[in-house]
Design a protein around this nucleic acid. Structure first.
Length: 559
RNA sequence: GCGCCCGUAGCUCAGUGGACAGAGCGGCGGACUUCGGAUCCGUUGGUCGCGGGUUCAAAUCCUGCCGGGCGCGCCA
């Protein structure tokens, strides 16, 4: 493949800066890296560099003068039409038409793979997300984590990482016992003997607990009435956990989210993993005994206090099992591990990062992505939710109401660390305001053009039979530029773990296409132009489809 | 009390070192009787919470306030 245009320009700049420095007898030691960015608006070129401003200090000249000096040393290049110095000293590069048309050829050539980059370099990354306790159905907050985690995984994969998705099942501990007791209590209640097992304080009050209890009664009859409740508790806990987890798996699968590994917390308490983890920490000098407990020396890193690993009663803390879990992740050979957490867990980050370092890994080998709360709106009013009372809107309800595509889009449309207003009415409306339809419509519209073309006996021509240089209108140029930016967007979205970037990109691309479509006709113009526009439409279709695919949203041929 | 996040147009939000701060919605005014008007075009609208500092350049970095959210357990 030919060299990327941004590299070409960067190298041109580096060389001419060197020559300019040489001319003035200046050493380039300690000078900043040359960087370029896209021109932000009309008249600022396709690419722009701020090098002259950065180097002005070293040259002892005003930025504008340095810019002129650098430009005077720039070599000619067929891809660059002209270079301008503008504003406070920007060097703006205007690319030639041959580059613009080259991009369209490139898109058609790579098809489904256009936008695929290799910033991951084949390294292995694990994305662990959702990981909700199997004590109740997934609610909308989990849904946002599911969408963001899944889309991140898709983006990373497209960016050259080898990705594995994992769900950590918190199936040990008090919460599960509470689930069992709640179900058991409802069972006895239905049997008319509530006094045998009173409903636990802080038990799970949702209606689904009654459903579980009724299922048990249907399948097992009243046989549990004859034994002490402590004896049947494991059955209830096990049964409820299993059924709920199956429901969670079904919800996620229907939401388009597939996991490679379902990792059970219980498997960590095999009598080996936690002690081994402690050994490692002690060997590295980060675990010590005090006050009858075993502690982790978190303050050796950036945490503000040391943390208990083994309580004075001998039981490991949740944190201890979590360290063992992360050790296990790294032992499995991942180069990077991403945890997707609810934003209310942010206080947990310093100790987990500390633990990762104590295990001998770099702090950056663990990335934590925080997901802020979702605020559901219906009729402009906030839908009130409370987990305690069991009144919460489930992911299933939202999917059923607004559909998978709109749900995914809305969950991913904001930075994940900012609060999200999810307008249910807007999400399901087939209206002009709904951004999901806006993007999908652009894709369907292109297919519609192709259908009409076929009816007229016209086909999308082969790229090598098409002269793309007839595409000179501003809307055509803007659209082509947008297409060319897709690989960079993928790279940035992967680097920042920022799905919303792809959402914005897809929306902007759809907008560029709609503008083009309204300003110019594709069919029925002179044959040469018609061919070129059909090719441009096909390139747009490909990139829209690739963007939507990263979001896990369908790209319909008609709506 | 300490720590983290947030504060950008009437509303919902992009933009985290660059050129006159952007988009959608809302408001106002328009669009080819041929490819899908679920579209497009124009216009309205901002002391980027406030004050200091660093820089050639600050919404962006540092610092002090103000306002909102969250977290500070031998819970999970």
């Amino acid at each position: 493949m030919r060299k990327d245009i941004s590299e070409v320009i960067t190298e041109m700049l580096q060389e001419s800066i060197q020559k300019a420095a040489c001319e003035k007898g200046i050493s380039l030691d300690g000078m900043p890296q040359v960087e370029i960015e896209r021109g932000r608006r009309e008249g600022q070129g396709d690419w722009a560099s701020n090098a002259a401003m950065q180097f002005s200090r070293f040259f002892g000249e005003k930025p504008v003068e340095v810019a002129r000096r650098i430009v005077s040393h720039l070599p000619e290049d067929p891809l660059v039409e002209r270079v301008e110095v503008a504003g406070p000293g920007f060097i703006n590069f205007f690319l030639s038409r041959s580059w613009m048309t080259g991009i369209i050829e490139h898109v058609l050539d790579r098809g489904d793979d256009f936008g695929r980059v290799n910033s991951g370099g084949g390294k292995r990354v694990q994305v662990e997300f959702v990981s909700a306790n199997p004590t109740g159905p997934l609610h909308v907050g989990h849904g946002r984590g599911a969408a963001v985690g899944d889309i991140c995984a898709r983006i990373l994969s497209f960016a050259g990482w080898e990705v594995e998705r994992e769900y950590y099942i918190n199936d040990a501990g008090l919460q599960m016992e509470l689930l069992g007791r709640s179900t058991q209590s409802r069972y006895f209640e239905i049997c008319g003997r509530p006094e045998i097992a009173p409903f636990p304080e802080d038990g799970y009050k949702g209606g689904y607990i009654y459903d579980l209890a009724r299922d048990v009664l249907d399948k097992e009859g009243e046989r549990f009435l004859e034994q002490p409740p402590e004896g049947s508790l494991p059955f209830f806990t096990d049964y409820a956990g299993r059924v709920i987890l199956d429901g969670i798996k079904k919800d996620l699968s229907d939401f388009g989210v597939k996991f490679d590994v379902w990792f059970s917390e219980r498997s960590l308490y095999d009598g080996v993993r936690v002690p081994r983890m402690l050994e490692t920490l002690k060997k590295n000098g980060f675990a010590f005994d005090a006050e009858g407990a075993t502690w982790f020396k978190a303050t050796a890193f950036s945490d503000d206090k040391d943390r208990v690993l083994i309580r004075s009663n001998g039981a490991p803390t949740y944190f201890a099992s979590d360290i063992a879990y992360h050790k296990d992740k790294f032992d499995r050979g991942f180069d990077m591990v991403i945890d997707v957490w609810g934003a209310d867990h942010h206080g947990y980050i310093p100790r987990m990062k500390a633990a990762v370092q104590a295990l001998g890994r770099k702090e950056s080998d663990l990335q934590v992505l925080l997901i802020q709360f979702v605020n559901l709106l219906r009729g402009g009013q906030q839908v009130s939710m409370s987990t305690r009372s069991g009144e919460f809107v489930t992911l299933r309800e939202v999917i059923d109401e607004v559909g998978v595509n709109a749900t995914r889009y809305f969950f991913a449309m904001r930075r994940s660390d900012s609060h999200l207003d999810f307008d249910l009415d807007l999400a399901k409306s087939a209206s002009t305001d709904n951004p999901v339809f806006y993007v999908q419509y652009a894709h369907a519209r292109i297919h519609s053009i192709f259908r009409e073309a076929l009816a007229r006996g016209v086909k999308v021509p082969a790229i090598n039979e098409t002269d793309l240089s007839v595409l000179v209108e501003p809307e055509e140029t803007a659209l082509t530029r947008r297409l060319s930016a897709f690989p960079e967007e993928v790279e940035k979205a992967a680097a920042d773990l920022a799905p919303h970037r792809i959402v914005f990109y897809a929306y902007d691309l759809a907008g560029d296409f709609h503008s083009f479509y309204n300003a110019h006709r594709v069919l029925g113009v002179e044959p040469e132009l018609e061919s070129a526009r059909l090719v441009l439409a096909e390139a747009s279709r490909i990139v829209l489809a690739n963007s939507l695919s990263l979001l896990g949203i369908s790209a319909p041929e008609q709506m």
